[in-house]
């Protein structure tokens, strides 16, 4: 008799433990609300770390198709400062260049000498444009999305946090302007991972079909270290 009590108690405890360990489902919010809150958070954040990774078909930086964008990792602080290390692939050469942007002025390390040089206006890859309110992600997420749906919530590779996952079609014109011609102007599909509670956008995955190529260009943009406090200053030019 006493033994039966103990077994019942054990099973009840086990059930309670199992229930308490189960992942809490995310709040049942519509996709539009989640996106709206994510845009609000994005425009209020003071800085973050980012990583842009292109895989699949090459994305060329020039019309002659001799320079391909591969990756950029760096930091952004409001309102207009960013720094990044950008990997560029050229025929027979893979190289990393450092970039610093302060407002409209941009500096880049020379591929051959490693020395900092100021770039002419509108040259090079300026990471601050990604977060521009007129051309950047906030504007694209606000105005250029269609067929927005919420799909199954998912954890990202490097975080144990279950996130909202949204999928949408994106018009490519503004994306084309923002990326300096790297993405778009045709439509692309995008998937977004947004954290519950904070509504911070942790990842956007953009798949862009490439004309004349069997494979698409895949762009993965990861964000982290939200509200990063960092001084980004113009580099010392020797």
């Amino acid at each position: 008799m006493r033994m039966r009590h103990i077994v019942r108690l054990f099973i009840a405890s086990l059930l309670l433990f199992t229930i308490s360990c189960r992942e809490q489902p995310l709040a049942d919010l519509p996709a539009e609300t989640i996106l709206e809150r994510a845009i609000t958070r994005m425009t209020s954040v003071s800085g973050f770390h980012f990583m842009i990774d292109r895989s699949g078909a090459p994305a060329y930086l020039d019309a002659a198709e001799t320079l391909s964008f591969r990756q950029a990792e760096g930091d952004y602080v409001t309102p207009d400062r960013a720094r990044a290390v950008v990997r560029i692939i050229a025929p027979g050469l893979v190289t990393d260049v450092s970039v610093v942007s302060v407002g409209a002025i941009q500096w880049e390390t020379n591929v051959l000498t490693g020395q900092w040089e100021e770039l002419p206006p509108d040259w090079g890859f300026n990471p601050t444009v990604l977060f521009d309110t007129q051309l950047g992600l906030p504007a694209i997420l606000t105005s250029d999305l269609s067929n927005l749906v919420r799909v199954e919530s998912q954890k990202l590779d490097d975080s144990g946090l279950l996130m909202y996952q949204l999928s949408a079609d994106v018009a490519g014109e503004r994306l084309y302007q923002m990326s300096g011609g790297l993405i778009g102007p045709g439509p692309v599909t995008a998937t977004m991972w947004i954290a519950p509670e904070t509504f911070e956008l942790h990842r956007i995955l953009v798949v862009e079909p490439v004309a004349g190529s069997e494979e698409s260009s895949i762009w993965q943009v990861d964000f982290g270290e939200f509200d990063l406090q960092l001084e980004i200053e113009p580099p010392t030019i020797k």
Partner: peptide, 22 residues
């Protein structure tokens, strides 16, 4: 040495670009 640092994919992409160009 290059592949150990930059990864096989990036290395091979640069080689493909060279082959396409030259």
């Amino acid at each position: 040495a290059m592949i150990a640092e930059i990864g096989r994919d990036d290395f091979e992409e640069s080689m493909r670009m060279f082959a396409k160009e030259f």
